[in-house]
Simulated assay, not measured.
Amino acid sequence: MAKTQNSEHEMSFLDHLEDLRWHLIRIVLAIVIGGFVAFLFSDFIFNVIIFGPKSMDFPTYKYLCQIAQFVGVDTTFCAEELPFRIQNRTMGGQFSAHIWTSIYAGFVISFPYVIYQFWSFISPGLHSSERKYSKGFIVVTSFLFFLGVLFGYYIVTPLSINFLGTYTVSEQISNEIDISSYISLVRSSAIASGLIFELPIIIFFLTKIGLVTPQILKKYRKFALVIVLIVSAVITPPDIASQIIVAIPILILYQVSIYISKIVVRKQKQQAP
Rank of each mutant, 00 (worst) to 15 (best):
L253W: 04
L17W: 03
L164K: 05
Q270T: 09
I109F: 11
Y254H: 11
M11T: 14
A233C: 09
K218G: 00
L225G: 04
F205M: 08
F13R: 03
T157D: 00
Y63T: 10
I201Y: 07
D43I: 03
F143I: 11
K222P: 04
T141H: 03
T4P: 11
V256Y: 04
S102M: 09
P273V: 03
A247M: 08
M1A: 14
K132W: 02
I203G: 11
F197K: 00
I260G: 13
V140D: 01
T166V: 06
S102R: 10
E130F: 03
Q268F: 10
F118C: 06
K262L: 05
T207F: 12
F143M: 08
D19H: 10
T157P: 00
S123W: 07
F197I: 01
E80A: 07
L251D: 03
L217G: 03
F84A: 11
G93D: 11
F151V: 08
S129R: 07
I179L: 11
S123K: 15
G106F: 06
R187N: 00
F143L: 13
I49D: 02
T141F: 04
N162A: 15
I240V: 11
S242G: 08
P238M: 15
Q255A: 04
F118D: 05
V140Q: 08
G152V: 00
L150C: 06
Y61I: 06
V140W: 01
Y133G: 04
K267H: 14
K54G: 00
S184H: 13
S180Q: 10
I209T: 14
Q243D: 09
I103L: 14
Y154E: 01
E8L: 09
S180V: 08
I263M: 15
T101F: 12
C65R: 01
Q5F: 14
N6L: 15
G210W: 04
R26I: 14
R89Q: 10
T90H: 12
L82Q: 05
Y113E: 10
I230V: 15
I109S: 02
E130Y: 04
L14S: 07
K267P: 02
I50W: 01
V37L: 15
A38C: 15
S181F: 13
A38H: 15
